[in-house]
Structures are given as C-alpha cells and as structure tokens.
Design a protein around this nucleic acid. Structure first.
Lengths: 133, 133
DNA sequence: TATATTGTACTATCAATACTAGTACAAATA
DNA sequence: TATTTGTACTAGTATTGATAGTACAATATA
C-alpha cells in the first residue's frame, strides 16, 4: 500500500501512518497476512526517521492491527471483533457523536447524513448481514 | 450548560471544552444568544487556569461558534451552514471515514452502523427534511 | 466620573510530546 | 556465519498544553 504523509499536518506522522493502515485494513487494501514495508524501507521511502516508523508500528502492534516478528517483518493481523454488540456500539459512540455534531453544524438533515455514510460504505469491508430466509 | 473535564485525558482541556460546546450547540443545549460562563467564572468552577479557558473561547471564536464582547461576555453565535451541499459533504468526509473504519474493524454491518447513527440522531438538531407533497 | 466586570495581551515557566540522530542488541533467515 | 529485521537505549531539539501573574481595553453600571 502507499502511505501519504503530510509532514506539516497537525496530525503526528506516526498517527497518520497508523490511521492510514487502519483504513487500509478496513477497506481491504491490506489483508491479513500481508507484509508491511520494513521499518528501514518505509523510512527511506517516506524520508522519515526510522524511529518514527518504529513508533507507528509499535502503536499498530499495541492495538492489535499487526503482529511483528523480529528478523521477518511486520504483518497484518486477523481482524478481531471484540465483545458484545452493545460493547461494539459503545466503542463506536465517539465517532457517531463527532459525525452528528459536524453534520448538524453543517446544516445537513438526517437523511443527507445517512446518505453520506451509505455512499462511502461500499469502500469498506463491513460485515455481511445475515439475510433472513 | 455543564462542562465535564478530564484533566488526565489525552485530549487537551481547551479542546474538551470546545468539543463539548460544539456538541451542545448541535444538540440545542446551547442556543444562539445564550451566554457562556465568563472566563473567570468557568476557571473557578472547573479549577482550571483562566488562560486555558480563554484559549478555548478564542478557538470557539475562531471557528465561529461564539462571538465575544469585551466587558459583556461570550455568547453563542447563529449557526452558519456554509457553501454548497457538495462542499458540506466534503467537510463531513473525515468523520464518515473514521466512523466506517471503526465500524468495520469492530465487525459491524452497514445496517448496524446506520442504526447506530439513527439511534443517536434524535439528540441532534439536524435540519428538517422538506417533505415532498 | 468612578468602579467593577469582561475579554485580551503579555512574559515566564514547567512538563510532556513528537521527532530526529546515532548506536547497539536480539531474533530469525539464508 | 552473515544478513535482515524489529527493538532498546541515550541524547537533543522544537513544539504544545497548561499554569502563574500582571496589566490593559472596552463595556456596563452606580
């Protein structure tokens, strides 16, 4: 995958990398087992200090997005969807509020907001809903 | 309104205040013309340095959420929804991606995600959709 | 006019974070 | 054994967030 880094962004470089990797996994651009560039490779490619890349990979390891093997590399982990449905929704709450706050202040309606989600949803590997007979 | 500050959060205090004020306006807890606590009042109430409160108010002023009058106080501004529908959606994009990334990695389906938005939408003053006769 | 209130501006200081730089080590591979 | 990979460590710089204290400017009020 290609990382797109903006050094002058308010978002720290290591956070940009982590966020983009998360999005790539959620979109299927990165799949379980895929190898990420090595720390030194990516540091050269992005012209960034290797320690910054290492910090990004360490963060990804921490959140369970990848697993790393010394001497082998860093690989995308299986997605592990946690806990109960209620608990999942709770994790989602922060993002729902951010979205609805933004939508409201932008003057959107509920339908426009839902449409915005529906339009982009196709780019993400959301779980397939079990169809009832 | 009541601000709920967590000093040990990774989110800066001034950002917590700004975010909560934005949410309150989007939910109608704060309405145009309402006066916010004075800098010194809120500093005492939250046991926070007045300069930190002032920074939050300055940020709110910058994003057009409030207008301030020296000697009078800080007041909630009218909501100004900007530009074209397309431009509005573009502003929303970041939040949509964050939501869908989180939802996907949590193992939710599109319907569950949309339901999560619908469930909370009632708490926000989203624009009323024009009903077609 | 005088006084109090309110937001603003300023300097200084402290702590934490983000990043860079360089070196060295440990585990896996070839 | 040599190479590759991630990891650990120290050190330093710049920026940010927050605190502390003082002073000023505009508004409202007595």
């Amino acid at each position: 995958m290609r990382f797109n880094i903006n050094p002058s962004s308010a978002e720290p470089i290591y956070a940009q990398i982590t966020r983009q990797a998360r999005e790539a996994v959620a979109r299927g651009t990165l799949r379980a087992g895929d190898q990420l560039p090595t720390v030194r490779e990516l540091a050269l490619e992005l012209v960034i200090n290797p320690n910054t890349i290492a910090a990004a990979y360490r963060e990804m390891e921490r959140i369970g997005l990848v697993h790393t093997r010394r001497g082998r590399g860093t690989f995308v982990a299986e997605i592990q969807s946690p806990a109960s449905p209620g608990e999942r929704r709770h994790h989602l709450q922060k993002h729902v509020d951010a979205l609805l706050t933004e939508a409201t202040l932008l003057g959107l309606s509920e339908e426009e907001t839902l449409d915005a989600v529906r339009t982009v949803a196709g780019k993400y590997l959301l779980r397939e809903t079990k169809k009832n007979g």
